[in-house]
């Protein structure tokens, strides 16, 4: 079976991770080529006290610009936006980034559900949502919203996740199109950047 490829109309990717997420996201971000055509939004649960050095950490491994989201910033394709600690990250009409200090949702701020639901509202079928490793069920309802709006869902195969609860929860209620290991997810994302008929040589040049 050939590796799954994403349809070309995907213009945004929203990812959520919790426990084990720094490594998982690091691996996926490292796989994104410079010509990656979609905007990437990320919510990673962290302890509130930790200073937001994550953008620097991920930037060191990623060919795309990685930034902590600023309120009202216009979304650019090929940019990676991280939710700042202790703020919800939302996608607003424009598309434009928005932040809020609304109450935590299921004990989480930022909340993956909040990102997914608002991104689904803005992008509809042009969105891919990915739920990665984590020890709670944030992201599951958000992934349902993404699929209900016509977008695509992917989860990290729980058997391969550092902490399986979060991808399992999403798998349980969202019937995602893709259930893959991190390597599989990386290949899936890369398919979006590959020229119409991807050649292995082009892959290697990346």
């Amino acid at each position: 079976m050939s590796a799954p490829a994403l349809p070309r109309h995907i213009t945004a990717v929203a990812m959520g991770a919790s426990a084990g997420g720094v490594d998982a996201l690091g691996q996926l971000l490292a796989a994104l080529p410079r010509e990656f055509p979609a905007a990437v939004f990320i919510v990673l649960h962290m302890s509130r006290e930790r200073p937001s050095l994550l953008a620097d950490l991920f930037q060191a491994r990623c060919a795309l610009p990685v930034r902590e989201a600023t309120d009202k910033e216009p979304v650019q394709a090929g940019c990676v936006y991280l939710a700042p600690p202790d703020y919800h990250l939302l996608v607003d009409a424009g598309p434009q980034l928005a932040l809020s200090v609304d109450e935590p949702v299921q004990y989480s701020r930022p909340s993956i559900d909040v990102l997914f639901e608002t991104a689904a509202d803005e992008y509809g079928e042009r969105l891919l949502g990915i739920v990665l490793t984590g020890g709670n069920d944030d992201g599951a309802r958000g992934l349902v919203a993404i699929r209900a709006a016509g977008g695509l869902g992917a989860v990290q195969d729980p058997a391969t996740a550092m902490v399986p609860a979060m991808p399992s929860a999403a798998l349980g209620i969202a019937s995602p199109e893709y259930v893959l290991s991190l390597d599989g997810l990386a290949a899936l994302l890369r398919s979006l950047a590959a020229p119409a008929s991807a050649s292995p040589a082009a892959e290697r040049l990346r």
Binding site: L90, D92, A93, A98, D102, V114, T118, D121
Partner: peptide, 9 residues
């Protein structure tokens, strides 16, 4: 008001 968060609330 910013729409996305207003809609959620």
């Amino acid at each position: 008001y910013a729409q996305a968060s207003l809609k959620r609330r």
